[in-house]
Design a binder for these strands. Structure first.
Lengths: 118, 118
DNA sequence: CAAAGACATAGACATACGTAAATATTTACA
DNA sequence: TGTAAATATTTACGTATGTCTATGTCTTTG
Protein backbone atom coordinates (compact mmCIF):
# COMPACT_ATOMS: atom_id res chain seq x y z
CA UNK A 1 0.00 0.00 0.00
CA UNK A 2 2.42 2.60 -1.13
CA UNK A 3 1.10 6.12 -0.89
CA UNK A 4 2.13 8.74 -3.34
CA UNK A 5 3.46 12.03 -2.15
CA UNK A 6 0.59 13.81 -3.83
CA UNK A 7 -2.58 14.38 -1.92
CA UNK A 8 -5.80 13.06 -3.33
CA UNK A 9 -8.48 15.72 -3.56
CA UNK A 10 -10.30 14.10 -0.67
CA UNK A 11 -7.36 14.45 1.63
CA UNK A 12 -6.84 18.03 0.55
CA UNK A 13 -9.75 19.30 2.61
CA UNK A 14 -8.28 17.79 5.75
CA UNK A 15 -5.01 19.53 5.14
CA UNK A 16 -5.35 22.63 7.15
CA UNK A 17 -6.89 24.90 9.68
CA UNK A 18 -10.21 26.58 8.91
CA UNK A 19 -10.20 29.45 6.45
CA UNK A 20 -10.77 31.98 9.17
CA UNK A 21 -8.05 30.68 11.42
CA UNK A 22 -4.98 31.32 9.34
CA UNK A 23 -4.27 32.19 5.73
CA UNK A 24 -4.24 29.25 3.37
CA UNK A 25 -0.96 28.62 1.64
CA UNK A 26 -0.82 28.64 -2.10
CA UNK A 27 -0.50 24.87 -2.31
CA UNK A 28 -3.27 24.31 0.22
CA UNK A 29 -5.57 26.55 -1.79
CA UNK A 30 -4.65 24.74 -4.97
CA UNK A 31 -5.52 21.46 -3.33
CA UNK A 32 -8.89 22.58 -2.06
CA UNK A 33 -10.14 24.58 -5.02
CA UNK A 34 -10.77 21.46 -7.18
CA UNK A 35 -13.06 20.06 -4.50
CA UNK A 36 -15.13 23.22 -4.45
CA UNK A 37 -15.05 23.42 -8.20
CA UNK A 38 -16.51 19.95 -8.38
CA UNK A 39 -19.37 21.06 -6.15
CA UNK A 40 -19.89 24.41 -7.81
CA UNK A 41 -22.42 23.35 -10.38
CA UNK A 42 -26.19 23.09 -9.89
CA UNK A 43 -26.43 19.70 -11.52
CA UNK A 44 -23.56 18.26 -9.50
CA UNK A 45 -24.96 19.74 -6.30
CA UNK A 46 -28.25 18.01 -6.94
CA UNK A 47 -26.50 14.79 -7.89
CA UNK A 48 -24.43 14.59 -4.74
CA UNK A 49 -27.42 15.59 -2.66
CA UNK A 50 -29.53 12.91 -4.26
CA UNK A 51 -26.89 10.29 -3.65
CA UNK A 52 -26.12 11.36 -0.09
CA UNK A 53 -29.75 11.58 0.94
CA UNK A 54 -30.84 8.42 -0.84
CA UNK A 55 -31.90 5.29 0.94
CA UNK A 56 -28.77 3.47 2.09
CA UNK A 57 -26.51 6.39 1.24
CA UNK A 58 -26.11 5.26 -2.32
CA UNK A 59 -27.92 5.60 -5.60
CA UNK A 60 -27.88 3.92 -8.97
CA UNK A 61 -27.12 5.97 -12.05
CA UNK A 62 -30.36 4.74 -13.51
CA UNK A 63 -32.23 6.60 -10.77
CA UNK A 64 -30.22 9.75 -11.25
CA UNK A 65 -30.58 10.02 -15.00
CA UNK A 66 -34.33 10.27 -14.82
CA UNK A 67 -34.28 13.19 -12.42
CA UNK A 68 -32.72 15.52 -14.96
CA UNK A 69 -33.61 16.89 -18.32
CA UNK A 70 -30.08 16.19 -19.51
CA UNK A 71 -28.58 13.52 -21.69
CA UNK A 72 -27.21 10.36 -20.11
CA UNK A 73 -23.61 11.18 -21.11
CA UNK A 74 -23.90 14.57 -19.46
CA UNK A 75 -24.96 13.02 -16.17
CA UNK A 76 -22.19 10.47 -16.53
CA UNK A 77 -19.73 13.29 -17.06
CA UNK A 78 -20.84 15.12 -13.92
CA UNK A 79 -20.66 11.95 -11.86
CA UNK A 80 -17.16 11.38 -13.11
CA UNK A 81 -16.12 14.85 -11.99
CA UNK A 82 -17.54 14.25 -8.52
CA UNK A 83 -15.88 10.85 -8.40
CA UNK A 84 -12.50 12.12 -9.50
CA UNK A 85 -12.68 14.88 -6.92
CA UNK A 86 -13.13 12.18 -4.30
CA UNK A 87 -16.63 13.21 -3.34
CA UNK A 88 -18.38 10.13 -4.68
CA UNK A 89 -17.39 6.50 -4.51
CA UNK A 90 -18.23 4.28 -7.44
CA UNK A 91 -19.14 0.62 -7.39
CA UNK A 92 -20.34 -1.53 -10.24
CA UNK A 93 -22.79 -4.28 -9.34
CA UNK A 94 -23.95 -6.27 -12.30
CA UNK A 95 -25.14 -3.97 -15.02
CA UNK A 96 -25.66 -1.09 -12.65
CA UNK A 97 -23.28 1.44 -11.17
CA UNK A 98 -23.89 2.77 -7.70
CA UNK A 99 -22.48 5.96 -6.34
CA UNK A 100 -22.01 6.70 -2.67
CA UNK A 101 -21.22 10.04 -1.08
CA UNK A 102 -17.99 10.35 0.86
CA UNK A 103 -19.41 12.08 3.86
CA UNK A 104 -16.09 12.44 5.57
CA UNK A 105 -14.80 14.44 2.62
CA UNK A 106 -17.85 16.68 2.78
CA UNK A 107 -17.40 17.16 6.49
CA UNK A 108 -13.74 18.01 6.14
CA UNK A 109 -14.65 20.58 3.56
CA UNK A 110 -17.39 21.99 5.75
CA UNK A 111 -15.00 22.28 8.67
CA UNK A 112 -12.54 24.11 6.51
CA UNK A 113 -15.12 26.63 5.32
CA UNK A 114 -17.13 27.11 8.46
CA UNK A 115 -14.60 26.51 11.18
CA UNK A 116 -14.28 29.31 13.67
CA UNK A 117 -11.22 31.50 14.09
CA UNK A 118 -8.66 30.84 16.78
CA UNK B 1 -41.65 26.54 4.35
CA UNK B 2 -42.12 29.70 2.30
CA UNK B 3 -39.32 31.42 0.46
CA UNK B 4 -38.99 34.99 -0.71
CA UNK B 5 -39.10 35.57 -4.43
CA UNK B 6 -35.48 36.55 -4.78
CA UNK B 7 -32.69 35.27 -2.61
CA UNK B 8 -29.40 37.07 -2.30
CA UNK B 9 -26.48 34.71 -2.69
CA UNK B 10 -25.77 34.97 1.01
CA UNK B 11 -29.24 33.87 1.95
CA UNK B 12 -29.12 31.06 -0.56
CA UNK B 13 -26.93 28.92 1.66
CA UNK B 14 -29.43 29.21 4.49
CA UNK B 15 -32.23 28.07 2.25
CA UNK B 16 -32.35 24.42 2.92
CA UNK B 17 -31.56 21.27 4.74
CA UNK B 18 -28.05 19.80 4.49
CA UNK B 19 -27.09 18.09 1.26
CA UNK B 20 -27.23 14.68 2.85
CA UNK B 21 -30.62 15.20 4.43
CA UNK B 22 -32.83 15.60 1.40
CA UNK B 23 -32.29 16.21 -2.31
CA UNK B 24 -31.75 19.82 -3.24
CA UNK B 25 -34.36 21.26 -5.55
CA UNK B 26 -33.29 22.68 -8.85
CA UNK B 27 -33.78 26.27 -7.70
CA UNK B 28 -32.00 25.64 -4.42
CA UNK B 29 -29.04 24.20 -6.27
CA UNK B 30 -29.01 27.15 -8.64
CA UNK B 31 -28.94 29.49 -5.68
CA UNK B 32 -26.08 27.76 -3.93
CA UNK B 33 -23.82 26.97 -6.87
CA UNK B 34 -22.74 30.62 -7.36
CA UNK B 35 -21.52 30.75 -3.78
CA UNK B 36 -19.37 27.68 -4.28
CA UNK B 37 -18.24 28.94 -7.63
CA UNK B 38 -17.02 32.11 -6.00
CA UNK B 39 -14.96 30.05 -3.57
CA UNK B 40 -13.73 27.55 -6.12
CA UNK B 41 -10.58 29.34 -7.15
CA UNK B 42 -7.20 29.13 -5.43
CA UNK B 43 -6.66 32.87 -5.49
CA UNK B 44 -10.08 33.63 -4.09
CA UNK B 45 -9.71 30.96 -1.43
CA UNK B 46 -6.50 32.55 -0.28
CA UNK B 47 -8.05 36.01 -0.44
CA UNK B 48 -11.03 35.15 1.71
CA UNK B 49 -8.80 33.23 4.09
CA UNK B 50 -6.44 36.16 4.40
CA UNK B 51 -9.30 38.52 5.07
CA UNK B 52 -11.09 36.25 7.51
CA UNK B 53 -8.00 35.40 9.48
CA UNK B 54 -6.59 38.90 9.50
CA UNK B 55 -6.33 41.06 12.58
CA UNK B 56 -9.77 42.52 13.27
CA UNK B 57 -11.44 40.29 10.70
CA UNK B 58 -10.76 42.72 7.90
CA UNK B 59 -7.96 43.50 5.50
CA UNK B 60 -7.00 46.32 3.20
CA UNK B 61 -6.62 45.65 -0.50
CA UNK B 62 -3.14 47.11 -0.26
CA UNK B 63 -2.16 44.21 2.00
CA UNK B 64 -3.73 41.64 -0.28
CA UNK B 65 -2.19 42.78 -3.54
CA UNK B 66 1.33 42.21 -2.29
CA UNK B 67 0.67 38.62 -1.30
CA UNK B 68 0.15 37.54 -4.90
CA UNK B 69 2.13 37.48 -8.05
CA UNK B 70 -0.85 38.80 -9.94
CA UNK B 71 -1.71 42.19 -11.32
CA UNK B 72 -3.69 44.64 -9.19
CA UNK B 73 -6.74 44.52 -11.52
CA UNK B 74 -6.81 40.76 -11.25
CA UNK B 75 -6.96 40.89 -7.47
CA UNK B 76 -9.60 43.58 -7.69
CA UNK B 77 -11.59 41.35 -10.00
CA UNK B 78 -11.46 38.39 -7.61
CA UNK B 79 -12.45 40.56 -4.68
CA UNK B 80 -15.41 41.80 -6.66
CA UNK B 81 -16.55 38.25 -7.32
CA UNK B 82 -16.35 37.37 -3.63
CA UNK B 83 -18.16 40.58 -2.76
CA UNK B 84 -20.93 40.06 -5.27
CA UNK B 85 -21.42 36.52 -4.03
CA UNK B 86 -22.00 37.98 -0.58
CA UNK B 87 -18.93 36.42 0.97
CA UNK B 88 -17.03 39.65 1.53
CA UNK B 89 -18.24 43.03 2.78
CA UNK B 90 -16.63 46.11 1.34
CA UNK B 91 -15.95 49.42 3.06
CA UNK B 92 -14.03 52.37 1.78
CA UNK B 93 -12.10 54.39 4.33
CA UNK B 94 -10.13 57.22 2.87
CA UNK B 95 -8.04 56.02 -0.01
CA UNK B 96 -8.18 52.46 1.17
CA UNK B 97 -10.80 49.76 0.76
CA UNK B 98 -11.26 47.19 3.48
CA UNK B 99 -12.87 43.83 2.98
CA UNK B 100 -14.45 41.80 5.75
CA UNK B 101 -15.51 38.16 5.59
CA UNK B 102 -19.17 37.37 6.14
CA UNK B 103 -18.66 34.54 8.54
CA UNK B 104 -22.35 33.77 8.82
CA UNK B 105 -22.49 33.13 5.10
CA UNK B 106 -19.51 30.80 5.36
CA UNK B 107 -21.09 28.99 8.26
CA UNK B 108 -24.39 28.56 6.46
CA UNK B 109 -22.54 27.10 3.54
CA UNK B 110 -20.55 24.80 5.79
CA UNK B 111 -23.73 23.57 7.46
CA UNK B 112 -25.24 22.88 4.08
CA UNK B 113 -22.26 20.84 2.93
CA UNK B 114 -21.34 19.07 6.12
CA UNK B 115 -24.65 18.76 7.89
CA UNK B 116 -25.54 15.24 8.91
CA UNK B 117 -28.39 13.25 7.45
CA UNK B 118 -31.74 12.98 9.19
C1' DC C 1 -22.95 -16.30 -29.84
C1' DA C 2 -26.03 -12.45 -30.65
C1' DA C 3 -28.82 -8.87 -29.09
C1' DA C 4 -30.19 -5.54 -25.70
C1' DG C 5 -29.51 -2.63 -21.81
C1' DA C 6 -26.54 0.32 -18.63
C1' DC C 7 -23.01 3.25 -18.45
C1' DA C 8 -18.62 5.51 -20.17
C1' DT C 9 -15.71 7.81 -23.60
C1' DA C 10 -14.63 10.78 -27.68
C1' DG C 11 -15.28 14.69 -30.41
C1' DA C 12 -17.32 19.11 -31.30
C1' DC C 13 -19.12 23.56 -30.14
C1' DA C 14 -20.75 27.71 -27.65
C1' DT C 15 -20.11 30.07 -23.49
C1' DA C 16 -17.77 31.27 -19.21
C1' DC C 17 -13.51 32.19 -16.70
C1' DG C 18 -8.83 33.98 -15.27
C1' DT C 19 -5.56 37.09 -16.52
C1' DA C 20 -3.12 41.21 -18.27
C1' DA C 21 -2.63 45.98 -20.30
C1' DA C 22 -4.59 50.28 -20.61
C1' DT C 23 -7.57 53.57 -18.67
C1' DA C 24 -10.81 55.64 -15.41
C1' DT C 25 -12.22 57.11 -10.75
C1' DT C 26 -11.67 58.63 -6.25
C1' DT C 27 -9.13 60.61 -2.44
C1' DA C 28 -5.44 63.05 -0.05
C1' DC C 29 -2.37 66.62 0.17
C1' DA C 30 1.30 70.05 -1.38
C1' DT D 1 -5.63 73.24 -8.24
C1' DG D 2 -2.85 69.73 -9.69
C1' DT D 3 -0.34 65.65 -8.82
C1' DA D 4 0.27 61.15 -6.82
C1' DA D 5 -1.62 57.01 -4.76
C1' DA D 6 -5.25 53.34 -4.17
C1' DT D 7 -8.64 50.87 -6.31
C1' DA D 8 -11.99 49.85 -10.05
C1' DT D 9 -13.45 49.28 -14.92
C1' DT D 10 -12.85 48.11 -19.78
C1' DT D 11 -11.12 45.43 -23.37
C1' DA D 12 -8.98 41.53 -25.20
C1' DC D 13 -7.47 36.80 -25.39
C1' DG D 14 -6.34 31.97 -24.46
C1' DT D 15 -8.15 28.18 -21.93
C1' DA D 16 -11.58 25.61 -19.36
C1' DT D 17 -16.42 24.13 -18.86
C1' DG D 18 -21.11 22.20 -19.84
C1' DT D 19 -23.65 20.15 -23.19
C1' DC D 20 -24.89 17.25 -27.10
C1' DT D 21 -24.38 13.41 -30.65
C1' DA D 22 -22.18 9.37 -31.86
C1' DT D 23 -19.81 5.46 -30.47
C1' DG D 24 -17.53 2.15 -27.37
C1' DT D 25 -17.44 -1.26 -23.44
C1' DC D 26 -19.27 -4.43 -20.42
C1' DT D 27 -22.84 -7.48 -18.60
C1' DT D 28 -26.89 -10.22 -18.81
C1' DT D 29 -29.86 -13.24 -21.16
C1' DG D 30 -32.25 -15.50 -25.16
Amino acid sequence: MSMSLELTPVQAAACCAPLARQPLSESEAEGIAPLLKALADPVRLRLISMVASHQGGEACVCDLNDAFDLSQPTISHHLKILHEAGLLDREKRGVWVYYRARTEALQNLAALIGGHAA
